[in-house]
Nucleic acid binder design. Structure first.
Lengths: 331, 331
DNA sequence: CTGAAAGCGCTTACAG
DNA sequence: CTGAAAGCGCTTACAG
């Protein structure tokens, strides 16, 4: 069985308080005893257990990020921003995902209420108003990324504006029949992006519901290569064939490109996200500052943990266009 | 302040033991009191705290996955396999990454020794033999993915064979001047893949060190789009220009494709991994069964947690070829 | 089915 | 700088 602080204290001939101090507040212990204890600990493979420390100190020194799914490029890039920002703090990052199939709210609530982290960042877990309110009553530090609720600190981007920018840019090139490749209508960001898309088309009185394509696959609310592929096939098969496309995610755009390749046709397309691969694939896209979103969320969360009574922070980033081959090569 | 089990017990007029049972062993409590307690807990937002439970029960009900970096497509796909397999168990998954810049071994050791999870899966954390030995002395359940050490349960793929398959396939098409786009020579899998590449070329007496290109960027041991791009530029600039290429990762391949596009030249290329995007991009590649690797690791780990004295499991998967456009389109 | 009590492995004022 | 002691919020035999 692994040794405890008692064993180490006994071997060293000191009290457990001293051993504890060596690990938590080294300077408060004489150098010689500190070194002796460290050596004994090292030799016996001792290290304080995280949950015992957490229970006694009431701090876990970790923050948890909750995502709807682990394997998602958009989340990943946000995560790397979170990670970078966290390095300076003492805390570490743990990541959990809520499982599909089970009620998302229950899972989020479970994670938060167990309080195994000092604070939580929820990425794209779009709960209902009531659910957010119930969750908020827990008084636990939580920051929302990619969703908004007045009771929370939030970090979002302007989805309406992003979609508008993309669609407007296409229209400015002179094309008129601009389609949209959407994801699930239930997705919160999608609702906003449809708005932005519509707004741009409305300026020319060109909006037409039937120009929005949804694909078939439900996986990840339609944010998949496969769904993008399907949607582009639908788009290309429609009559009249649209002559440009706003596609709501880079990953979907990769699927859409495959469809275009197969049909041997290329229409201008602007996607959404600006993943790191997109630059290399040559995807034109609406750039979300994912790294920044992550780091900003950390800053806010850490601050909230320190000062629970702070005013709410609601940060909204404005997306920008990154135009590349997939657009230029319309030929 | 949040309520504890004592508060709930008091409100319900029962002992804390009963409250505890409601959450841990519901059937052992009369339905009526159970419902009453549940209701009180619900109303007051009570839920047992994870670390107090962990300390008392000596089980955290979670397993931790440690990765060298969060934003990596290869890890992500393994993770999704891990996640799927874990659903059936009671445990949940938490993910931590070790930070670059700080000594990897120290961080891994820290995570493991704090014992905040019941077991650990280490993905691609290539430690030295001595480090693995020291870590192994902790007696904590650990499974290695993508690395091998006799003291551990391991899940690997045959990197030599994978590289051999790819190179051999290119040679079988009649090309002779087959280059390799490598990553850092320090990477454990790379060493093996160079072996496999060499093995295939040796059969034709064609191996030539100068056919291996490394790119410049060090980030992620060279497993980046940028590095692949750089390496392909080097390759295309070399004289004589190689007429085919084994590229050691799909992500690097995406960078390499960009270089080829820019130079307006296309040589057959077989990459490595078979990420989900690769199918859509049309990348030919050596397929690693990433999902399977993840799920297998979970099975082994869960088993080891139950039966610490089990014999070691060492599973090796054999990769296979997935040939697509990037190869065919050599024209 | 329920309760009293010991114990999980730590931290941290408090006193010296 | 160090120790004795209380306490963190739970679980779990044990007894009834």
């Amino acid at each position: 069985m692994a040794l405890t602080i008692y064993d180490i204290a006994k071997i060293a001939g000191v009290s457990i308080a001293t051993v504890s101090r060596v690990f938590n507040n080294p300077d408060s212990v004489t150098e010689s005893t500190r070194n002796r204890i460290l050596q004994i600990a090292q030799k016996n493979g001792y290290h304080p257990q995280a949950f015992a420390q957490a229970l006694a100190s009431k701090r876990t020194k970790s923050i948890a990020v909750i995502v709807p799914v682990l394997s998602n490029y958009f989340f990943m890039e946000i995560l790397s921003g979170i990670q970078d920002q966290l390095i300076e703090s003492e805390s570490e990052l743990v990541l959990v995902n809520i499982m599909s199939g089970v009620d998302a709210f229950q899972q989020v609530q479970y994670q938060v209420k167990r309080r195994w982290a000092d604070g939580y960042i929820l990425i794209s877990t779009h709960l209902t108003n009531e659910q957010y309110e119930e969750l908020g009553s827990c008084q636990i530090p939580i920051v929302l990324i990619d969703d908004y609720h007045p009771n929370y600190d939030t970090v979002t981007t302007d989805n309406v504006e992003g979609a508008y920018l993309a669609t407007k840019h296409l229209l400015d090139q002179g094309v008129r029949n601009v389609a949209m490749i959407s994801a699930s209508k239930l997705s919160a960001p999608i609702k906003l992006r449809i708005k932005g898309y519509k707004k741009a088309l409305d300026e020319f009185d060109l909006f037409d519901e039937s120009l929005i394509f949804y694909g078939n696959s439900d996986y990840r609310d339609g944010f998949s290569e496969q769904n993008g592929y399907e949607a582009m096939i639908q788009l290309l098969d429609s009559d009249p064939q649209p002559d440009a496309c706003f596609c709501t995610s880079d990953i979907k755009g990769i699927g859409a490109l495959k469809a275009m390749r197969e049909r041997n046709i290329e229409i201008p397309m602007i996607c959404y996200d600006n993943l790191s691969v997109s630059r290399y694939i040559g995807l034109s896209t609406v750039a979300q500052p994912m790294q920044q979103m992550g780091s900003k969320a950390v800053t806010i969360l850490l601050d909230r943990i320190q000062n629970p009574s702070n005013l709410r922070s609601n940060v909204t980033f404005t997306p920008s266009l990154a135009i590349r081959d997939s657009f230029v090569s319309q030929s």
